[in-house]
């Protein structure tokens, strides 16, 4: 039960309470740029969820096995080169470069794979895929996972692959929810008389501010859920 509670808390936390867009401000560029039509926004949301899961899987694997202090693969290689050495090998200085490499190559790979095997899906979100490489939401997901592997006080608190994947997928879903809602509001705004200087990005940011206020209402939901699940 405790395990289920922790999984539920991570997913609700990432998708609603600490929404990627409205609480952490990552992925603002597509949020402002691609939120004109609901179908486009939904496609972008799905593409981000898809890529963030793959990037989370790869970055968790690399962080856990290669770059964290005392990681198994690095320790093994170090032991082969310097038998009997007691030093703890820490490659975490390479983290950022590895993440950006992982994201760029997985986007490229997903694009090729979709074009070959799912042409319909490729047509649906092909145009968004190159944009996603520079989407902060993906890198932010990787960084949060890194924080929960290298920044924890005891090994027991370390996130396993399951928690990392749940975090990434629900973060992506949270992004999709926010951008689709924004697109729905903007479609209605087309019919309104917006003051000229605020047209476009200005009114989008103001609406986002009001949405962020609404999402602040989710604060504390996690405590209630935790109490409910552990009862």
């Amino acid at each position: 039960m405790e395990y289920i509670a922790s999984i539920v808390l991570i997913s609700v936390g990432a998708a609603l309470i600490n929404n990627f867009v409205l609480h952490y401000f990552v992925g603002i560029c597509p949020f402002v740029g691609v939120s004109r039509r609901v179908e486009m926004a939904f496609g972008m949301g799905c593409a981000v969820t898809f890529v963030i899961s793959i990037a989370a899987f790869l970055s968790w694997t690399f962080t856990y096995f290669v770059t964290r202090p005392g990681a198994p693969v690095t320790t093994w290689i170090w032991g082969m080169v310097n038998p009997g050495s007691e030093a703890v090998v820490d490659l975490s200085i390479l983290n950022y470069i590895i993440y950006i490499f992982v994201i760029a190559s997985s986007v490229q790979f997903v694009e090729m794979y979709l074009r070959k095997f799912f042409p319909a899906l490729f047509k649906a979100f092909g145009i968004f895929l190159p944009l996603i490489t520079t989407n902060c939401a993906i890198l932010f997901g990787c960084l949060e996972i890194m924080k929960h592997i290298t920044g924890v006080s005891s090994p027991a608190e370390m996130w396993g692959l399951d928690k990392a994947l749940v975090f990434a997928v629900s973060g992506g879903i949270g992004f999709a929810i926010a951008i689709t809602m924004m697109a729905g509001i903007r479609e209605e705004l087309d019919l309104c008389d917006v003051p000229k200087p605020l047209e476009g990005a200005g009114i989008t940011l103001l609406v986002a501010g009001i949405m962020a206020m609404a999402f602040m209402g989710f604060t504390g939901v996690d405590r209630g859920l935790e109490a409910l699940l552990l009862k």
Binding site: P197, G202, L205, L206, M213, M216
Partner: peptide, 18 residues
């Protein structure tokens, strides 16, 4: 808090355009 960031930037952007 986060909403204030969106509101401030939105209004400043409006002022800049105006």
């Amino acid at each position: 808090l986060p909403p204030g960031a969106f509101l401030t930037l939105g209004l400043l952007l409006g002022g800049w355009n105006w």
